[in-house]
Design a protein around this nucleic acid. Structure first.
Length: 586
RNA sequence: GGUCCCGUAGCUCAGCUGGAUAGAGCAUCAGAUUUCUAAUCUGACGGUCGGGCGUUCGAGUCGCCCCGGGGCCA
């Protein structure tokens, strides 16, 4: 049981003993650390509900609390706050238990769920830009977090590989080289194994094709026709499309690899197409889907929550499927075949209406069963002007450029400070990469995900204060101490009860399981960012005030080394959830 | 037109079921290093929480109206 749950139970019991609902016994971290460590405001809420005197209720609760070995001080303050301070013996006991536990006190998930994370992936043929950063980094953090909590997690990049842009590209290739066999209806097989286009070609072709189609309705119609034929199985187009996908995936794997992001599946929209016709006829047969103005739709106006939603369009009057159709089919497959209990769609919050429609539609279809689908929406990445981010030259900043920029800044900082000079150039480069990635990921994750986001390269390459590099630095100092202790033959010993400088650190270590559980429940990696920063800060204060290696009392030194080792584990655990890797030195 | 989100310190942002003195980081200023990595630590300065009315013992948080910015749908 986590610390907070333990306290909730103690106070829930006390409220129950005082004749009140035990749900009032929720305990939170103190807003006044100068007065106490935790507080319970339940007496105020209970008083409101029953129109009683809050102080009198709090008195009754106080009298009923079983302090045991857990609570040192209990007091009534203000209008009815209950202030709580734990015994040092109990804090030391929690830390000692965590030290013996590879999971650091994080209870295994119960029930253990099958969780599927959909990254709402990038489109084939388009390079990843800073806008794709969030889905990659947030989604990766969620898959790491849920795995750590003990769930069975799989992830799917879910590429955009089936839209009109594919037809545009086919036509673009035809313009450049109409003699290729892909366009010859007589040729049915044995297409070249080598792709006619490289990644660089694709990246240049896409904007060209897109603006051509936008400018000219005739060109757009050609692209639509090509898309239609592709989707209906024209062999030459399928072969060409397959090259586009292969070439794109190789590029995407480089970018995701640099970010340290991995997926279980590299599926795309195309993978669910074959199941759509069967799904449509099933929905029609059960009258979940109806014909409206020539289109097949699911009506959503009966959810009773205020304004009716527009219907979920499944098949347009011209026979074309839509995004929602594909999403419905993949949801159905994920529940039926993957046995997913919880499906997380990590996608820009501007798509929230779309997902509400899809989720209501799938609910009406009955495909979801007991499973839960959630849209993990995140804020838009804008430039300083509040509009979608552009480089100074007006172009889109590629993700790869951002990563190398952060790495260069880190290397520069290391050179200026004469840091890590003893390392080989290759090792220095590795460290610079880790530091740069830490800066980028932490600044992306540290705000609540639904907040909008102003992209600022200065902020992304900042190394002081509340940043990824600060956290790595704290970890590196711990590692350095532990290494030196080993050299001098100093070992870690039993944890003694905390002194004033250590107590905040003990409290933070005890708070790890609650922080991770809440972050997982609400899919909020920023809570893990908060936790890691507070933990590192508590260690820094301890470090500044207690010189571990110069401590002469072996028992105290051993305890401090144990505390340092445990803090390092808790820090690396939370940094691991954020996708940050700590170097040995920096 | 319908609907949703945002407005908090000079800047970038937190603020969990309404609770005590609204918190961080950056910037500015003042300190700390013969000592475990100063990418650090300690402290100070800095806020009519966009405005108004209301509910409440208590409102940044809830309700209504207005101002300003943005998203989505039509």
């Amino acid at each position: 049981m986590t610390l907070r749950k333990k306290l909730d139970k103690i106070f829930g019991d006390a409220f129950a003993a005082a004749g009140l609902d035990r749900s009032f016994g929720l305990v939170q971290e103190s807003a006044r650390p100068d007065l106490c460590q935790f507080q319970c405001n339940g007496a105020l809420a209970a008083a409101k509900a029953s129109k009683a005197n809050p102080r009198a209720l709090a008195e009754a609760v106080l009298a009923a609390v079983d302090k045991g070995i857990v609570i040192r001080d209990l007091s009534l303050a203000g209008p009815g706050f209950i202030n709580i301070t734990l015994t040092d013996a109990f804090l030391a006991d929690i830390a000692a238990t965590a030290r013996q536990d590879p999971r650091l006190g994080v209870p295994p998930a119960d029930p253990r769920l099958k969780i599927l994370v959909d990254f709402g992936g990038p489109n084939v043929a388009k390079p990843m830009h800073v806008g794709h950063l969030r889905s990659a980094i947030i989604g990766d953090s969620l898959q790491r977090l849920n795995r750590l909590l003990g769930h069975d997690v799989v992830s799917d990049v879910h590429l955009g590989d089936w839209g009109t842009q594919m037809g545009m590209l086919i036509e673009e290739v035809r313009l450049q080289d109409p003699g290729l066999p892909y366009f010859d209806p007589e040729v049915r097989e044995a297409y070249p194994l080598e792709s006619p286009v490289t990644l660089q070609d694709l990246e240049a072709m896409y904007p060209r094709a897109s603006s051509r189609c936008k400018a000219d309705p005739v060109e757009m119609e050609k692209a639509r026709q090509a898309t239609f034929e592709l989707q209906n199985g024209r062999a030459g187009y399928r072969a060409l499309w397959s090259h586009f996908c292969t070439v794109s995936k190789a590029g995407l794997k480089d970018d995701f690899g640099a970010l340290g992001v991995e997926f279980t599946y590299w599926y795309g929209e195309s993978d669910d197409q074959k199941n759509i016709p069967g799904m449509i006829s099933d929905l029609k047969q059960r009258e979940v889907a109806v014909i409206s103005e020539g289109a097949t739709v699911i009506l959503l106006d009966d959810d009773g929550s205020g304004a009716p939603l527009p219907p979920l369009l499944l098949v347009k009057s011209d026979g074309a499927y839509l995004y929602g159709t594909t999403d419905l089919a993949s949801l159905r497959r994920r529940v039926a075949e993957d046995k997913a209990d919880r499906i997380l769609y990590v996608a820009d919050k501007r798509q929230s209406l779309h997902f509400r429609q899809v989720f209501l539609g799938v609910k009406k279809s009955g495909y979801l069963g007991q499973a839960v689908a959630e849209h993990i929406g995140f804020g838009t990445v804008n430039g300083p002007d509040g509009k979608p981010f552009k480089t100074r030259a007006g172009g889109v900043m590629k993700l790869g450029d951002l990563i190398s920029m952060a790495r260069t800044e880190a290397a520069k900082r290391m050179a200026e400070g004469g840091i890590a000079e003893s390392l080989s150039p290759a090792e220095r480069e590795k460290v610079a990469h880790l530091v740069g990635m830490a800066a980028v990921k932490y600044s992306d994750l540290c705000n609540p995900r639904s907040s909008d986001y102003v992209f600022d390269i200065e902020k992304f390459t900042q190394f002081e204060g509340r940043t990824g590099p600060y956290l790595l630095y704290a970890a590196v100092r711990m590692k350095s101490i532990l290494r030196k202790a080993l050299e001098r033959g100093f070992g870690a010993g039993a944890l003694l009860q905390p002194s004033d400088f250590e107590r905040p650190l003990f409290l933070k270590i005890a708070a790890l399981p609650d922080a991770l559980e809440r972050a997982g429940r609400d899919s909020m990696p920023n809570l893990v960012c908060d936790y890691a920063f507070e933990l590192a800060g508590a260690f820094s204060t301890f470090y500044q005030n207690c010189n571990i290696l110069r401590e002469e009392d072996p028992a105290r030194r051993g305890s401090w080394l144990a505390l340092t080792g445990l803090t390092l584990q808790a820090l690396e655990c939370s940094l691991g959830v954020l996708g940050l890797e700590t170097p040995e030195s920096m």
